Amino acid sequence: MFRNFKMVSKMVFGRGCFAQLGDILKEQRRADRSVMVFLVDDVHKNKPLKDRLPLEKDDLLIWVNVDDEPKTKYVDQLVGQVRTHMEEKTGDLPAGVIGIGGGSSMDLSKAVALMLTNPGSAADYQGWDLIQNPAVYHAAVPTLSGTGAEVSRTTVLTGPEKKLGINSDHTVFDQIVLDPELIAGAPNPQRFYTGMDCYIHCVESLEGTYLNSFSQAYGEKSMALCQDVFLADPEDADDKLMMASYCGGMSIAYSQVGICHALSYGLAFVLGLHHGIGNSVVFDYLEDYYPQGVREFRQMMERHRIDLPRNLTANLSDAQMEKMVDVALVLEPLWENALGNDWKTIITREKIRELYRKM
């Protein structure tokens, strides 16, 4: 059975296009449902972007904190804030949810949009195609590029038992606004780590068993853009990185990521390591699986003077190590994409422990 792939309905790309956001949202506002909810990374709280938000009278602005990886508990809290706000307005649902920031902010906005129309906790929907009701209208404006969250069908969340996305066609954004001016000046090493998420997406997609012409076309273009951005430093690096993120996200949307992402989920769950850093830490130890990609990754690290954190797992208890292994093994499609249908005969719990011990 071929996948009937859901894509972002509308997108606008170009320097300065953020100025169009108000007009774009106006099309979604109705007399009986006009409230927009803006979830904005709090790094912008005292920055010029704050004064450019197209807020109208009854809109709700929430500054979201992403110092930690997005958690299901935080999603539930944000949904509660939105519901309380809407009780004071007309209608039970807002006209839309707008996520502005990096991958974590976008994931939070997707999750909130979903949970406004589905009962229970966000933790109830960690998995594949568990969402029953369509989300409210939701849009994204990236201010960091690399994660591909702007085009993916998942919102990656850490729950009480696991780190696993809410994977659903209903998760996909209805609108994205890609303005390269908004990612200018992102500080290193954050920009590097987020960009490496994109680069690793490409390596895992292009070398995976799920590879097809669709994912290959997007993956190869994204890979070339990443190589240009991180090995040549072109003048239009922000434009290229933003499109690399888009194409990388599209590539894995019709294939899958692999070993690096599976292992980084375990690191994030137990150690709270951010996604981009976690991927970079793990990828540096995967030369046996992705030799060319790891060599090139190390060249990029050297060029951008990146020193990865080391000895992260040295003092973990046996219970913590076992939990990391559990979290990694839950992600079966990632292992299958990387190693094929018989991946369970290749990857054992001891092999995963061995990889984690190196970190």
Rank of each mutant, 00 (worst) to 15 (best):
L55P: 00
E56F: 02
E56V: 06
K57W: 00
D58P: 01
D58T: 08
D58S: 11
D58K: 03
D58M: 01
D59F: 01
L60E: 05
L60Y: 03
L60G: 11
L60W: 01
L60D: 06
L60T: 07
L60P: 07
L61V: 04
L61R: 01
L61K: 01
L61A: 05
L61E: 00
I62C: 13
I62T: 13
I62W: 02
W63F: 15
V64N: 06
V64E: 02
N65E: 06
N65Y: 04
N65I: 05
V66S: 08
V66Y: 04
D67E: 13
D67Q: 14
D68G: 13
D68E: 15
D68A: 15
D68Q: 15
D68P: 08
E69M: 13
E69L: 14
E69V: 15
P70D: 07
P70N: 08
P70H: 08
K71T: 15
K71R: 15
T72F: 03
T72C: 13
T72S: 13
T72A: 12
K73L: 07
K73P: 00
Y74N: 09
Y74Q: 11
V75S: 11
D76S: 12
D76Y: 09
Q77P: 05
L78V: 12
L78C: 11
L78N: 05
L78Q: 02
V79P: 09
V79L: 12
V79F: 09
V79H: 06
G80I: 01
G80Y: 00
V82C: 08
V82N: 04
V82A: 04
R83D: 07
R83L: 11
T84L: 14
T84I: 14
T84W: 09
T84P: 10
H85P: 13
H85S: 13
H85C: 13
H85V: 12
E87S: 13
E87T: 10
E87I: 03
E87W: 04
E87P: 02
E87Y: 04
E88S: 11
E88H: 10
E88I: 10
K89C: 08
K89A: 05
T90S: 07
G91Q: 03
G91V: 05
D92I: 08
D92V: 08
D92N: 09
D92F: 07
L93E: 02
L93D: 01
